[in-house]
Simulated assay, not measured.
Amino acid sequence: MRSDLVRRVVVAVCAVLAVVGAFVGSGAAGGTPIQEAAGGALSADATLLAPAGPAFSIWSAIYLGLIGYAVWQLLPAQSREGDSARRQRTLGYPVAATLVLNAAWILSVQAGLLAVSAVVIVVLLVALLVAFVLVVRTRRRGQGVIESVLVDGTVGLYLGWVCVATAANITALLTACGFDGWGLAPDAWGVTIVVVAGVAGLGLAVFGAGRLAPTASLAWGLVWVAVSRTTGELVSGAVATAAVVTATALVVATVIIRVVAVARERSALGLASSAANPPTR
């Protein structure tokens, strides 16, 4: 179908656009690295919610997954009628939208438009939530490992990290605008936002029946927030402790949810098998 070909090409082009944007955003193409752009508002020591520099290495895994997905969905097998092809018709454009928004976010930060970058990353978060919902709802029992990694894993990893990045970006904007916390101490605000991020991660774990990828990247970001608050110039024991405790609790809760979900699925399969093959006497 021509519409399928157009969609697959659009996804591939958007993936290239995102990678080029990331290349520029890293400073490798002569641009200013994200941590130094916008007057350093997103640097590791700019706010209490800013993760340490090494945290951003997770983008390598995310971009690798996105490139892998873009190539995989171009393969002839994904154009044939079947469950996988139908799934890609549902996911293609939502994923492409996140790629365009990601590039737009990088460009807005490079241009020093911190307020615009905050709006863009919130829209990106919403787009990723939509993509995640679709990923969960279209997942098939027995789907291949490659599809699980490139589709489910990549979208989950992407979403979890953007949850952390959104909190950091909005905090950076509020700080740059001179937000005084309405009388609440900065540490209290930092702890509150960390806990909110953890609750959001728990919500994703419950909805996704214990999907590990969103939790992994969200916990990764929180741990690096803790590192930044203990080794950087902006020290906060309260925020660091909250970040570590929240990350740990989120991982444990997700694993428990996963174990329970798998046990229920196996039990349901066993009951279905028994009903289909009743014992004979």
Rank of each mutant, 00 (worst) to 15 (best):
R140V: 15
A131I: 10
L202K: 03
Y93W: 15
V133K: 06
V95E: 04
G178L: 01
S117M: 11
A115Y: 01
A165M: 10
R137P: 00
T166Q: 04
T90M: 07
Q88T: 07
V122W: 03
Q143T: 06
A185G: 00
A85N: 10
A172Y: 03
V199W: 05
Y158M: 14
A200T: 14
V109Q: 06
V196M: 12
L99F: 12
I121Y: 04
Q88V: 10
N169I: 03
V133W: 11
L134R: 15
L101W: 05
D187N: 07
G181S: 03
V195K: 02
E147S: 13
Y93T: 10
A115M: 04
I121S: 04
N169G: 05
V164R: 03
Y158E: 14
A168W: 13
V151M: 13
V164P: 06
R139T: 15
V195C: 05
V136A: 10
T175V: 05
V151G: 03
L125H: 07
G153W: 11
L204G: 09
C163T: 13
F179V: 01
Q110S: 12
S108P: 00
A185M: 10
R87W: 02
L204H: 05
G198N: 12
V133S: 08
V119K: 07
V122M: 07
V155D: 09
A197F: 09
A85V: 08
G181H: 03
V119M: 13
G160T: 14
D152Q: 11
T98I: 13
Q88I: 11
T166R: 04
T138W: 10
A127I: 14
N102D: 11
T166H: 04
V191L: 04
G142M: 13
G198Y: 08
V116G: 01
A118N: 02
V109W: 03
F179W: 15
L114H: 01
L159P: 09
Y93H: 05
L101I: 10
L91H: 03
R89Q: 11
G190S: 10
G142P: 00
N102R: 06
G144E: 15
A118D: 02
A176E: 03
R89W: 06
V126N: 04
V149A: 14
V151H: 03
A167Y: 07
L91W: 09
Q143V: 09
A205K: 02
P94H: 06
G92R: 07
A168F: 07
V100A: 13
A167C: 13
L134V: 05
L134C: 08
N169Q: 12
T154A: 08
L202G: 08
V135P: 02
V155F: 12
L107C: 04
L107W: 12
G183E: 10
V194H: 05
L173P: 00
V119W: 13
G181A: 08
G112Y: 00
G183Q: 04
T90R: 05
V120K: 09
G160W: 08
F132T: 15
D152L: 11
G112W: 00
E147D: 14
V123N: 07
T90V: 14
R87Y: 01
V151K: 02
T175W: 00
V196H: 09
